[in-house]
Write a protein that binds this DNA or RNA. Structure first.
Length: 556
RNA sequence: GGGCCAGUAGCUCAGCUUGGAUAUAUCAACUACCAAAAAGAGCGGCAGCCUUCUAAGCUGUAGGCCGGGGGUUCGAAUCCUCCCUGGCCCGCCA
């Protein structure tokens, strides 16, 4: 919180004896910068809210931060000292530079973030990309806040789906990443027609679990090809992982046995009629008919939940464990957390996102009705190049990527994750309006002015900032001063879309300002102050976009 | 059948966790009519703005019973409840 707000809250606390003071923003800046609604006090004091506001206003004395108060209706409105807030905000932005916005709340804290974790069966579609992009942005935000972050990718390399892929690939040689999707769709079709093949796939899986070295090699080869291909695409988008954890590592491992023993101590573990180990999960309010978690098969081999719990135990040992999961895993994740709670282990924090739908319906890799992330990237890239050519006659690769991938990322990140998204090409490829290119453009405009101004960054003091007296300037400064609060909220709630929305409003305000007021042609003193202001705007846009994994361009 | 999430302009979405912008509480009486009552963007639509720091921009305009009904409250898009529609889930897939 900034000291402006703090000084107002302190005043109100003193005068009203309220524990929590909620300040609001008036609908219109001319009405003030902060507002205190007096309704809450009217019952207690048996006076009309307006009277209360009047009385409070008389008690208020202007100070360094707040220059005036005004009663409007039932609201007591505070007017900040504009010079002071301008000076403090701009100086802080320019001084902290790339660090402006951080509160360092993550200092000396370690966090494990697991995201993406796509099944190694094919090239990722745009729905999966939602996971990776949200995850990557969360990683960036946490790092920015000073957390020591380790990024994990859990590879589900021993599933039935992979077994099917291995089966489908049996007769083929020199398989490359691009072939996998076709093979996967094909084998799914065949299995639908001939259930006998499914048994064959499960047979492969069981031989793998029993340690058949030849089969193991086959799996490894395919999985390797797939993970590498997936990671390449994501890396093209600037998404990196510190550790790839393979589920196969937990097959017949001591860790799953140990986990089972730990769970046994809770007294909630039992063997059911099929000779499976099952965890009783009554009392957790899980929305299930029978609240249980099946941990092993009848033959004692582990099922995914058991391996997942073992994995979670490992990660939580190193730090807070955050995981990004699709909405289909909500209940499952509650079950895992309930199991961890039984073991008195910190639960994992989860960020859920809803699925991306197509106009024709749901996406299904199996059926092949999907939009591949790589195709989306290609389309966006070619459109970005086209736009660049229109303007400059040629298109450099780096700029085109920043624009194209920025648009993809922003388009996905700006929507709150619990919403279903319907993918639409023309909408997704738009570079206008509430998009990354719009924000990047505002940045490029600011950069261009600064380049032409040739002025050196110097931090002026005092009434120098009194030269910023336009209302658009006050609004810009106000938005700039909010940035740390927005980043803080996005961190606490693990919601990157808050930053995306913030950046748009900042860019919008800047563009408005740009059109109304001249910077380079203004009088010397005003010009200098405005240059300070827009270099602060530029810096904040850069910091914010960086948290979304979006690059900036000095020219576009 | 049960659980979780979503429903805001033609389309895509902010805002909802923490209720607030033409206020006048509470109590009593009157309580019939009338008037006045600003919900935020983008896209798309319509009308404008490039010899002026980059038009990927800006300005104006039309477009909303905030899914529907009840309730709580001085005040509800926001809280509670029921219903409708869509997404996801509910024992040996991962």
């Amino acid at each position: 919180m900034n000291n402006f707000k703090e000084s107002i809250i302190n005043f109100l606390k003193k005068e009203t004896n309220l524990e929590n003071i909620e300040l609001e923003t008036p609908p219109n800046p001319e009405m003030g910068d902060y507002a205190f609604p007096c309704f809450v006090l009217s019952k207690e004091l048996k006076k009309s809210p307006n009277e209360i506001a009047q009385e409070l206003s008389k008690k208020f004395k202007p100070n360094d931060f707040v220059s005036d108060v005004k009663v409007i209706g039932s609201y007591l409105n505070f007017f900040l000292n504009k010079n002071k807030i301008a000076e403090q905000t701009i100086r802080q932005v320019l001084k902290q530079n790339n660090r402006y916005g951080t509160s360092n709340i993550g200092k000396n804290k370690t966090t494990m973030v697991e995201h993406t974790s796509i099944n190694p069966n094919a090239s990722p579609h745009v729905g999966r990309a939602r996971n990776a992009l949200i995850g990557d942005s969360i990683v960036r935000i946490l790092k920015f806040q000073g957390y020591n972050v380790e990024t994990h990718y859990f590879v589900n390399d021993v599933g039935k789906q992979i077994a099917m892929l291995v089966l489908g690939a049996e007769s083929k040689k020199n398989i490359i990443f691009k072939d996998l999707l076709g093979i996967y769709i094909d084998i799914n079709k065949k299995i639908e027609q001939n259930p006998e093949l499914e048994k064959q796939a499960l047979g492969l899986l069981s031989r793998l679990e029993k340690g058949d070295k030849k089969i193991k090699k086959k799996f490894e080869k395919i999985v390797h090809t797939c993970v590498k291909g997936q990671a390449n695409i994501l890396s093209e988008l600037g998404i990196q992982y510190d550790v790839f954890d393979y589920e196969s590592r937990y097959l017949r491992s001591k860790k799953t046995d140990e986990t089972l023993k730990l769970l046994e101590k809770t007294g909630k573990l039992f063997i059911d009629g099929f000779n499976r180990w099952v965890l009783d999960q009554k009392g957790y309010g899980l929305g299930m008919k029978v609240p249980v978690l099946v941990l092993t098969r009848g033959d004692g081999t582990s099922l995914y939940p058991l391996r997942d719990i073992a994995y979670a135990i490992e990660l939580t040992k190193k730090g807070t464990y955050i995981v990004v999961l699709g909405e289909d895993q909500k209940l499952y994740n509650e079950q895992i957390n309930a199991a961890l709670k039984e073991l008195e282990i910190f639960q994992r924090k989860v960020v859920h996102y809803s699925f991306v739908l197509l106009q024709e319906g749901k996406m299904s890799t199996r059926k092949g009705n999907i939009v591949l992330l790589e195709d989306f990237m290609k389309e966006a890239l070619s459109k970005a190049k086209e736009e660049l050519k229109k303007r400059y006659g040629n298109a450099d690769e780096k700029s085109a990527r920043a624009i194209a991938y920025g648009a993809i990322k922003y388009g996905i990140l700006k929507v709150s994750p619990e919403k279903n998204v319907v993918f639409d090409w023309s909408h997704a490829l738009s570079f206008e309006g509430e998009t990354a290119p719009y924000i990047q453009y505002a940045y490029a405009r600011a950069s261009s002015i600064l380049k032409k101004s040739k002025s050196k960054k110097s931090l002026h003091r005092g009434d120098f900032f009194a030269n910023l007296k336009e209302k658009e300037e006050a609004e810009l400064i106000r938005i700039l001063s909010n940035f740390p609060e927005v980043v803080g909220k996005a961190t606490n709630e693990l919601r990157p879309h808050l930053i995306a929305n913030y950046l748009y409003s900042l860019a919008q305000k800047f563009n408005e300002y740009y059109h109304i007021h001249q910077i380079l042609k203004a009088d010397k003193s005003i010009r200098d102050a405005r240059i300070m202001l827009i270099s602060a705007v530029r810096q904040v846009i850069k910091n914010g976009l960086n948290l979304l994994g979006i690059d900036v361009l000095e020219r576009m």
